[in-house]
Design a protein around this nucleic acid. Structure first.
Lengths: 223, 223
DNA sequence: TATCGGATTAAACGCATGTTTTAAACAATT
DNA sequence: AATTGTTTAAAACATGCGTTTAATCCGATA
C-alpha cells in the first residue's frame, strides 16, 4: 500500500520541518515538497496543520524513547549507578545520539512554548521520567528531606543536561570549537554532571573525581 | 517632541510582541496597534521589521542589565561571596525580577534560535558575563585545572539558572503550584544552586548547608 | 472487463502579511 | 502668513499562507 508510505513520509518531513522552523513558520507546502506528496495530502490524512503537528510531536517522542531507552534496574542496583545511567540517558536524548537532531529539537520547542501537543508529552514522558529521577535522588538523601529539596536537586540534574542542547549555538560562540568537539561529548558531560550531583549529595569522595577540583580553598590554606 | 515618544512606544510594544510571538509571528500591525501608532511608522523609524527587531533586542538587554546589575567587588571579596552574588544576579535576570517578563523572554528566544541580533548579545553581554563566572570559578580551583573543566562548571551554573526560566511552563505542570510559589523563589533557588556548586568544588562543609543532605552514604562510610 | 472507492492531483479561494505609496497634518522658520 | 521639512495617516499592492474543491488516477472487486 502506498497509503502508509505517504502518511509516514509526511510525518517524517513534518517533524523535520516543524523542528527547524516551528509550527507557524513551517509551511504545509514545504512539508509536502520535502515528502514528495501533494499539498492536499496533509488535509486528507491529518485533517489540518495542527493535528499533523501533534502527531509529529508524538512520533518524535516515541522515536526518542526507543533510540535512547533507560536501562532496566534491579532492586539491588546502587542509586549512584542509577543516577549516572539516568544522566547519560537524558543527555543522549537531549543531544540526539543516536538519532536525527530534529526529534529533540521539536520536543524542546514544546518545552519552551507548550502547545496542545505538550499535554501528551508531560503525561507520557516527562512526568514518569521526572518521577524516576526523584526516586533515585530520594535513595541518596535522608528520609526526612522535604520534597521540595528533592525537586531542587532533580531540576539541577535536568537543568544541566537541558542546557547543552538548548544553548547549542551559543556554546559554539563562547567556547572553542576544538574544545567542544573533544571535551563536550555525551560521555564526558554526563560524567561531569553526575559528579557535580553526587559530590553535592556527599556520595562521592574527592579522590574518585575524574578531575579533582577541591584541593584548595580560597580563604584558608591549601591541602 | 512626539518623535522620541513614538519611536519609544514602538520599541516597547515591539519588545513585548516579539517576546510573546517571536519574530515571524509578531505582526507589524499588532505592534503598531499596541503602540497606538500607524502601521507605516515602523518603516519610517526603523526601515523594516528586521531592524526593528534588532533594536528591540538591544533595548531589552540594556534594560535587563540596568535592572539587575552585578555588584562591584574588590580584590579582597571572597570567591564564594562573588559566586553567590553572581548566581543571584543571573537568576534575577533570568526570572526578570525586577522587570517585565518580556525582556528575558526575548533574549531567551535569541539564545535558542540566534538571528542577526544575537551577535551583539554575545559580544556585549554573554561573553563578558561568562568570563566573569569563569574567573570566579578559577579562584576556587587548582591553578592546574584544565580550561575545559572550568567551562564545565561554569555551564553547570548557567544551566541550572537557565532551566528555571526556560522550562517555566513545564514546571507548573510537574510541581505543585503552592510549592513553586513558596520554595522556588529567586532567593531560595540561588541559594540551592550556589550550594550545589560550592559543595561540588569542596568549598562548603556539610554543616553549613541550608538543607544538609549528605548525612548518609550508600556504599561507603561517612566523613 | 466494467465498476467502484480510496488516493492523488492541479487549481483556486479567502485571508493576513510586510511593505509602499500618496496625501494630509503639524511645527518651526522666514 | 507662507513655506519648508518632518511626522502621521489611510489605502493599496504583491505575496504567501492554509484550506477547499473538483477532477483524475488506479488497483481491487464483481
Amino acid at each position: 500500500m502506498t497509503t502508509d508510505s505517504t502518511r509516514e513520509r509526511i510525518l517524517q518531513a513534518a517533524g523535520e520541518q516543524f523542528a527547524t522552523d516551528g509550527f507557524a513558520q513551517a509551511t504545509i507546502r514545504a512539508i509536502c515538497r520535502k515528502a514528495g506528496v501533494n499539498i492536499a495530502a496533509v488535509n486528507y490524512y491529518f485533517g489540518d496543520k495542527e493535528r499533523l503537528y501533534i502527531e509529529a510531536v508524538k512520533h518524535a517522542r516515541r522515536l526518542r524513547e526507543k533510540q535512547a531507552p533507560l536501562p532496566t534496574w534491579t532492586s539491588s542496583t546502587p542509586a549512584e549507578k542509577k543516577l549516572r545511567e539516568f544522566v547519560l540517558t537524558l543527555l543522549r536524548r537531549m543531544l540526539c545520539e543516536p538519532g536525527d537532531p530534529w526529534q529533540t529539537r521539536l520536543i524542546i520547542r514544546e518545552i519552551m512554548e507548550p502547545t496542545k501537543a505538550c499535554e501528551e508529552l508531560v503525561q507520557e514522558a516527562f512526568r514518569p521520567f521526572f518521577q524516576i529521577l526523584v526516586d533515585i535522588l530520594r535513595e541518596m538523601m535522608p528520609a526526612t528531606t522535604p520534597l521540595y529539596t528533592v525537586h531542587h536537586w532533580a531540576l539541577s540534574v535536568i537543568g544541566q543536561c537541558f542546557y547543552y542542547r538548548a544553548n547549542e549555538k551559543i556554546l559554539t560562540m563562547l567556547i572553542d570549537q576544538e574544545e567542544l568537539r573533544q571535551q563536550f561529548t555525551v560521555e564526558k558531560l554526563s560524567e561531569h554532571i553526575s559528579d557535580v550531583i553526587l559530590r553535592g549529595l556527599g556520595h562521592l569522595s574527592s579522590s574518585s573525581l575524574s578531575h579533582p577540583v577541591a584541593t584548595l580553598r580560597s580563604n584558608d590554606e591549601t591541602a
